[in-house]
Design a protein around this nucleic acid. Structure first.
Lengths: 221, 221
DNA sequence: TGTCAACTGTCAGTCGCTGACATTATTGTC
DNA sequence: GACAATAATGTCAGCGACTGACAGTTGACA
């Protein structure tokens, strides 16, 4: 098996490719279903593999770690976000562009992932990640890698050198921290709809600049 | 063995307590020395335990995971930082107080940890963490827990409700992101002195507000 | 000095993950 | 349609992190 990423939506490929993608997606589905139901730590690779009727070894040929399968869908969403960010008009300020790109990504989440898992399962996965220490750690590391990419895009938009100018990374750090905060608040609340996380995200992003510059004690929140 | 934290600098305790602390510190020293030298992943618990002449099982009675021993010293530094933050005069704005507390914590790093490991080993550990994916993840998770505490302190300083007002957490998120950025830059450069990381930290913290509000294109960096 | 509790060692076992090699399935070719 | 070439899978053995159970040892304290 080659390590290449299976092209999503590729219809023009042979039986081998289709079969590969079928097991790939089936492993994701089985993993997420089992993990969200009985907990990440209480779910073994053997269980997941057995649910798809492949060997444990085959699982590790598709996903290098147990964590990987959990974040497989997130990866698609992140790619969509980056795309949306790059498409933002140059007139928008960095923070504004980030804000709008996220909201766009939330908006067409369904269309992106529905072919693999139901959106509802993806939302439950999100909550499971937030409540599993090991996955929180992995999630944060992945986010920080994503931050680098985002900072690069911002730097390019503004015509700055991404290697020497720290300002893009500073904005992205603030942005990213707020995104995570929003995610955590959403996970904590009972509501688990896409709409609610969209709303929370929007509200918190709009609070960044006031929070960092405003006179806190003068106006009640 | 009780799970309680060994009180640092406790001289007024029996032989048993002293012995316990000796193995505890010896395990840290051995672990950091071995890991910084040959890499985290290439160092086994058996090696560490053997270096201190205890069984592997005993190691896991002092530290719940292999990661834990790596962050044992960081914990002390973090506690010092929180202390310094709480001691900051109320007149300082949140970001200003955070900045000054960090710089203070860097300043008397030596006095805090010298009894356990040489400062130089601690600095090398910091770099090892940054260059080991698994440890980066753990570090980020720990940081995010620390952020919660910091946000609580800030909220108290400003007389805000930490549960409902997101502004403290927003500032802390920005602050924390920048701290991490500084740490990564420091790790990447050859210099590994305390002074250099202090300088980098200071510079980047002072860039937060300009980066989020300034007119980027008008002045070159 | 002896008893109790704390600490440690030993052992066996689970789970994530990997390398090596044999087996099966698909593909392009004749 | 048979046939090599190649890719995907299964099997097996093994490492390292981590845990529970139980037995042995050592410090605390009457």
């Amino acid at each position: 098996m080659t390590a290449e990423v299976t092209p999503r939506g590729g219809l023009r490929c042979g039986l081998r490719e289709r079969k590969k993608r079928r097991t790939h997606d089936a492993l994701i589905r089985a993993a997420l279903e089992l993990c969200t139901e009985q907990g990440y730590d209480r779910t073994t690779i053997d269980e997941i593999a057995e649910a798809v009727d492949v060997s444990q070894r085959t699982f590790f040929r598709y996903f290098t770690t147990k964590e990987d399968v959990v974040f497989a869908v997130q990866e698609i969403v992140e790619a969509r976000f980056l795309e949306a960010l790059q498409a933002r008009p140059a007139a928008e300020a960095p923070l504004e562009a980030l804000r709008n790109a996220v909201l766009l990504a939330w908006d067409d989440l369904g269309r992106m992932i529905e072919s693999i898992i139901p959106v509802e399962l993806h939302m439950r996965t999100y909550q499971m990640i937030e409540s599993t220490p090991g996955l929180v750690a992995a999630h944060l590391r992945r986010s920080s890698e994503l931050e680098e990419l985002i900072a690069g895009v911002i730097a390019r938009r503004e015509g700055l050198d991404p290697d020497t100018d720290p300002r893009p990374r500073i904005v992205v750090a603030a942005f990213s921290g707020v995104m995570r905060l929003a995610g955590r608040l959403w996970g904590g609340a009972g509501e688990c709809s896409v709409e609610s996380i969209r709303a929370i995200t929007e509200e918190h992003l709009d609070g960044i600049v006031p929070a960092l510059t405003g006179e806190w004690r003068k106006k009640a929140y």
